[in-house]
Design a protein around this nucleic acid. Structure first.
Lengths: 129, 129
DNA sequence: ATGGATTTTGACAACCGTTTTCATTTCAGC
DNA sequence: GCTGAAATGAAAACGGTTGTCAAAATCCAT
């Protein structure tokens, strides 16, 4: 029960940045894979549940997935142009979130932290003419 | 062109936490307001564009809005149970994000930081019986 | 291998929040 | 009051995601 899921996982691993379910599906079909959209959604969900891929929501509500190198907690620096992503650790931020939470009597603190920017190669070609 | 928008804004101000467009709509209809769902969506968008309300996406892709006290940059500590929200500042986090970005050659850095937890009053009534 | 139970798959339909459309209403300025 | 521009809202369209269900693949004891 793992062939398709692995195929999805592999496809994701080949991508630089975050990809939507439909991206993955299109990509797989392009390469001749015989798989249905429903199965891609299910595989991505399973992988996300199992912590093998990271998920985040784009501004327009799409879920995008990424097979990350580390399985430890980390955040992302994402190029808003090309989607290239680097994984970053932020121990200070973790502590800050924990502190802010408990300071106000909140428990079971979690947090979402994502950093967006324009990467070097995307901002370089400023010379359009 | 501002009556409806103000009504939406007021409704939002009366709420403790983040509310969805449909929440706001339902709330307004409950109180007898004569307004359409479309207009609520439009008003919320306009308010968000104008920076008068903050927006964020729930895990299930819904946009939720909040009329925040400060108009300066801040983050949120949100109770995942009741939605109660405290506005928090985090200068250290701002600097961290900026640093992480430029460290990797990214420019025009932005970031999203939200902290979730269970607030004191929601975790207190552990006594169910 | 074989039959039968179980799981996985995927085409399609349903869902649901959101956006668009467009005819109607409201309103400012004359 | 009249006119044109902006706002409104009911209903339809949209798009990503999830549910349905019958067919296909897989497992397993025989």
């Amino acid at each position: 029960m793992t062939t398709r899921r692995d195929a999805v996982h592999d496809t994701l691993r080949r991508s630089e940045g975050f990809r939507s379910a439909q991206d993955v599906y299109a990509e797989m079909r392009l390469h001749g894979a015989k798989i249905g959209l429903t199965t891609v959604y299910r595989a991505l969900q399973a992988l996300a549940d199992g912590g093998q891929v990271d998920v985040l929501r784009t501004d327009d509500g799409e879920s995008v997935y990424r097979a990350c190198a580390t399985d430890t907690h980390h955040h992302h620096l994402v190029c808003r142009r090309c989607g290239r992503t680097v994984e970053v650790a932020g121990p200070a931020v973790e502590r800050w979130a924990e502190m802010v939470g408990s300071e106000h009597g909140f428990t079971e603190i979690t947090h979402t932290v994502e950093v967006f920017g324009t990467c070097a190669s995307c901002s370089a070609p400023a010379k359009v003419g």
